[in-house]
Design a protein around this nucleic acid. Sequence first.
RNA 1: GCCAACGUAGCUCAGCGGUAGAGCAGCCGAUUCGUAAUCGGCAGGUCGUCGGUUCAAAUCCGACCGUUGGCUCCA
Length: 656
Amino acid sequence: MHVLLPDGKQLELPEHATGRQVAEAIGPGLARAALGVRVDGRLSDLQSEVPAGARVEVVTKKDDDAMFLARHTLAHVMAQAVQELFEAEGYGRSQVHMGIGPVIENGFYYDFDLPRTLNPDDLEKIEARMRELVKADLPLQKYALPRDEALARYRELGDPYKVELIQDLPEGETITFYEQGGEEGFTDLCRGPHLPRTGAVPPHFKLMSVAGAYWRGDESRPMLQRVYGVAFATKEELEHHLWQLEEAKKRDHRKLGRELKLFTFADEIGAGLPLFLPRGEIVRHEMERFVREKQTEHGYQHVWTGHLVKEELYVRSGHIANYADDMFPPMVDGDVTYRLKPMNCPSHMTLFNSQFYSYRDLPLRMAEFATLYRNERSGQLSGLTRVRSLTQDDAHIFCTEEQIQEEFALALRIVRETLDTYGLKDYYVQLSLRGDEGKYVADDEKWERATQALRAALDSEGVDYVEARGEAAFYGPKADFMASDALGREWQLSTIQVDFIQPSRLGCEYVAEDGSKRTPVVLHRAVTGSTERFLGVILEHFAGDLPLWLAPEQVRVVPITDKHRDGAMRLVERFEAAGLRAGVADEGERMNAAVREAELLKIPYIVILGDKELEQGTVSFRSRKEPNRNGVPVEAFVEHLSRNAAGRVLEISPLG
RNA sequence: GCCAACGUAGCUCAGCGGUAGAGCAGCCGAUUCGUAAUCGGCAGGUCGUCGGUUCAAAUCCGACCGUUGGCUCCA
């Protein structure tokens, strides 16, 4: 047989040649450096056969794919270390069960079913043993077994997970094993690919945590212990990764919320129910004001529909049938049962029904900043990003089918303008479409027309999008905005959804041009999603350095001594008259301490006031961009700040 | 919900069977000072809650509550 090399040359090889033989045939130097191969672009290893006629590239440690092999092999090395740890404690092989051990971003994990739980000390021991196994440079052997033999082996070991994995493999699939360190070492059912020997693993790895994970992610299955590890090609990359985790910790919005005195949680109030301090409420209010202005500008009307709704409405809307688990339990008052509002749509549709609308009134854009209550499972709660009471900047657009594209495009524009203002420049849209399975309502043509309308709108707005088939809600297609923050973490924020079903369930109708009654299509849409969640995201995005327009306190005046306090007060009044949020340092506080305190609160402008400034009618200040500016006329300073705040400018250029 | 770790003063944390500690913040006093912590004093906690073991529990055990990380990126 022969294979094709990247330079176009053909290489003659014996039948059933492996990746290793390819590398050896090219040259002894490459054979030593070879860690794996790519066969027709797909990663494979030196232990595996190469099909005749394939294009083959040899992977060396410079290749990015080498890390995939290393991480995969590390998962096996870890499994061996765990197996040995338990054997050393006197447990038999049949008491240590292996699940799966795949490669993940930056590392790997392995799921174990063990006779006792692992603790952090175990991780250290396992990691230490892993380093020994890597140093021992054990060769990895690959071999295949017939299905019944493979099954028999794991049945004998009493390993239910591997048995299940084998049973789920399609008939005719070759069942392969990788063995390291011979019979006494470690053997695992695995399709590969792997490094040729454990010594080829770069020693830049670290076990991070142990966590519970359901077998195959299924809550009805047993919970296994998952050990996570990270691994990199170089020490620098590993250190960078660990540094990034530290950095993310520093930016944690929960920590910032405390330090900047924005919000708090209290046992007395309940889990997932945030309380906002004055500073936090200012930020919330500014966020809401911004979206409200934008919506008004784009022809939205704002409404208000309260907190409680009769359960009956949610029965008709279908929420009880589909969503009851996420709702708080009913409140029974005599004959009437109420629910805390988990969504606004039924309320807005009821509002729609309270008036008599004609086609001339469409599209009708109804927006609300509503407090919603969702009974999130306790394990899902996390700071502000997952709460049980949330404020949604929700809107429903009642329109005709023909108007979908235009209204969708308008909603897209609002979302984009909003994300831009917050400096979330890096985002794409996930367009979720129906799959072939039959949970979807409405007819195929309706879906097809709506799908085309959404694509056309995305194209005309020039938004990057990826399509996800089968991810749509049962009631219609949707577009979710995935935005990356300053640390590159992805968040799902805005959403725009088409709904073909709820309006008819709740009897929404308008009078068409020909006098007939028609049911409108509804677009559900949220710009920032929940205010709480969005605040959490931007706090981490800005690392707490909120832009001027959002900062709860925009200017802090620090008098040099108490004799400058009156002047400082007057200055604050001047700032406030210009619509700026300003404050004075505490009485008796030394200047340096006052500056420090203001810096820790991340106040954008700190004004130092002494004799010089009072005489000249100027300010001296420090800001993020200008660490030491002196002698700026008060009026110019006020004008500069209020203009930038009003314009919601993200990065304020130095004062001319 | 499930698994693991954690829960001590407003915050950060020490103490881990023998009557509760520090720094910061707070309060009082002194200091009046040019861009990230002035000095001294005072006060502050039924150690998350409930129960158990013990002569004795913040410390050991259990339950509950809360927080954090994780719960398919499929051999």
